[in-house]
């Protein structure tokens, strides 16, 4: 298959049996959304991983550039008080 005829790329998110949120599991090619769902079912949920699938066109994702890592994320490194590590979460709360 030549590059220019390739189906568009989709990013696949699956909510697992016990997961609370959809988690990115990988990507695949498909001609449209319906086919992306079918392919995602076959590629990513055959071992009973999923309860729900989201397919997002990869082109629709706006990503931060790796080169901006410093300006974007470093400032928060030194602000340890922003990290919620000083609390003991009671067991009864469960997942937060």
């Amino acid at each position: 298959m030549s590059q220019k005829n390739e189906w568009p790329l989709w990013e696949i998110f699956v909510r697992g049996q016990h997961g609370l949120a959809h988690r990115h599991v990988g990507s695949l090619h498909a001609a449209d959304a319906e086919m992306a769902l079918n392919n995602a079912r076959d590629v990513y949920t055959r071992r009973n991983e999923g309860l729900s699938i989201w397919c997002v066109p990869a082109a629709a994702i706006t990503a931060s550039a790796p080169s901006e890592k410093g300006p974007l994320f470093e400032p928060s490194n030194s602000k340890v008080y922003r990290h919620p590590t000083f609390y003991d979460i009671p067991k009864e709360i469960g997942n937060m």
């Binding site: 298959m1 189906w7 695949l28 090619h29 498909a30 079918n38 392919n39 076959d42 590629v43 055959r46």
Partner: peptide, 11 residues
């Protein structure tokens, strides 16, 4: 003809 089809057919 495509990786996705390959997996689906094998399934």
């Amino acid at each position: 003809p495509a990786l996705e089809e390959d997996i689906a057919t094998a399934n």
